[in-house]
Design a protein around this nucleic acid. Structure first.
Lengths: 319, 319
DNA sequence: GCAGCAAATGATATCGATATCAAGATATCG
DNA sequence: CGATATCTTGATATCGATATCATTTGCTGC
């Protein structure tokens, strides 16, 4: 910047002002300096600016990337969320610092202006640990009762209710839920499902399955069959479980959706091209990421930010 | 740091040295200062350090996150790559700055010590654009002939050869390849496949399909059937295509693998639980990410770094 | 007893930007 | 014409760390 100043015959501070489009400098001078900077390939030194401004213009995003039976790792969703976050923050001039939980103690993370937590659903303890850092924090997931941080998530309860309403509308009276209610988001789905069914005097059966895989879905249905349970509808908390269930049902000679209605969750791309095309509950991940980022920015600017749930939509296809 | 110095009754510089484990300070003093820092919850100011050291200790990772028919967005693979990268760089004290191509002009990205490009396979022009920044750069993908940057990727050619050998071993003489050879990595798969088959006097048929979906795979097989093409083996360059193909074959009354052998690519988690369990070529994404990061670090430290391909393995299952 | 050396610590300058306050130039007004 | 307001520019200090060179202290060896 000093070099530019010399070249332009002005002082450093004028260059600084010109480059940040300050109205304090004459327009002519400003444009002259901006052109010069471009010619000379000048690059602002971010560290210097951040030092002086006492902020980092950076948001740390902490993602769970360890392998697990849970879906966090193998599904595309974290990436979609990341996409939304990245787009929104970048547009606002912020950088996205990506870390795993293990790397979260790095100096750069602690220096961030805020942090966004993804895929920490099952580990509330981890969330609390980060709470202590005193940074603005936004978490993706299910709303807790006594959280002192902002939570953004999709409306899992509404998802459950929508599926229940769908089943009731089809005249189903013996529904089954397959999934892992130990996971807060999934507990919400189950609880919305149960509540809405209860309004019609229907009580679903719960089959607990921790792995969200096709095999696990098949296994769930097979175990129902082995126990001679009668059921006419199945709500799986992941599309893979649902597909496994459909497959197993077919093998058992039960027709979908004539004998049993099946609905999955997440509406992954595969769902639409599954045979038969799978009905599923869709969340808008991109929008979710975007909202996370906007909440974050608001908090950084000392504006109030509230937790928020995003609507979901039931996509009814063939099952 | 000045505060710590006052508390400890030493000078700032001694504190600085103590905290960076410099042997220049007495061990007793060092430990005393480190304890004090911990007590006081001292956080190093990264901007200040980076300013003084004239480096950012940051690597920009540029990911393609726009929706597309290609697999980059919906598959978990970039995330796995990210996991490997993140782990390795964090361990080395570097931060990962995540950006989309659109955000790559941000000041923070330009200030990075290096950049890693993911999922830019189809857009070689983009790669060249970044080349001009003069930063150390590592790209994930297929080796180009005249690239002046380091490329890390899995051995797509070997993947193709392995599938060819597998088919030949099974006595198949009329194989088909399904995919989009316009994509450099996939072109490599095809070319390894073709070459290895040629050694046995076999020439495969190419069915071009740009979408990597189940529906597209079904469609490919249906179009083969409509044209009365005889084939006894099918190599699809994605698992979804392969699954679609298997499904279509079954619908046409052809048995897999008795009548037709099918192999996919990527060995996605779904492949193992597909019915029948799908044979597929597996790449080690985590290791790939890790290697990308190590190359990057080497370049940053002015060591020579060469392009490298990672071995793949053919996982033979039921198809 | 003193030169010579090693170990430990400190004073100062510096990285590259911006905030603050001061000041010169120009315009406006009664 | 003088005084005040407005526009434009600059001098200086500062953000928080580290590199360099200087200094102090204690010890070794002859």
């Amino acid at each position: 910047m000093a070099d530019l100043a010399k070249l332009a015959g002005v002082s450093k501070i004028t260059v600084s002002r010109a480059l940040s489009d300050s109205p304090l400098v004459n327009r002519e001078t400003r444009e002259r300096i901006q052109d010069l900077a471009r010619e000379q390939g000048y690059k602002l030194n971010v560290s210097a600016r951040n030092l002086r401004l006492r902020r980092s213009h950076t948001v740390a995003v902490i993602v769970e990337m360890k392998p697990s039976n849970d879906r966090t790792m193998f599904d595309p969703y974290p990436l979609m969320l990341l996409g939304g976050i990245s787009q929104e923050l970048t547009a606002a001039g912020y950088s996205v610092l990506l870390t795993t939980r293990q790397g979260a103690s790095a100096a750069a993370v602690q220096a961030a202006d805020g942090m966004i937590l993804l895929g920490q659903g099952v580990r509330q303890d981890a969330v609390r640990r980060f709470d202590k850092l005193g940074l603005p924090m936004v978490v993706w997931g299910a709303q807790g009762d006594h959280d002192d941080h902002v939570v953004v998530g999709s409306d899992n309860r509404q998802g459950g209710r929508a599926v229940a309403a769908h089943f009731i509308g089809l005249g189903r009276r013996n529904p089954v839920f397959v999934g892992n209610p130990g996971h807060p988001e999934i507990f919400e789905r189950l609880s919305g499902f149960v509540d809405a069914l209860a309004e019609h005097g229907v009580k679903p059966l719960l089959i607990r399955r921790d792995e969200f895989t096709l095999a696990s879905g098949m296994d769930a249905v097979q175990s129902l069959a082995a126990r001679h349970v009668t059921f006419d509808a199945l709500f799986a908390c992941s599309d893979l479980l649902a597909m496994g269930a459909v497959r197993a049902l077919q093998e058992l000679g039960r027709r979908v959706p004539r004998d049993v209605s099946v609905v999955g969750y997440d509406d992954m791309p595969l769902a639409a091209s599954f045979q038969p095309p799978l009905s599923s509950v869709r969340q808008d991940w991109q929008e979710g990421g975007s909202l996370l980022a906007r909440k974050m920015l608001a908090m950084i600017h000392d504006e109030a930010a509230q937790s928020e749930v995003l609507p979901v939509s039931l996509i009814v296809r063939a099952t």
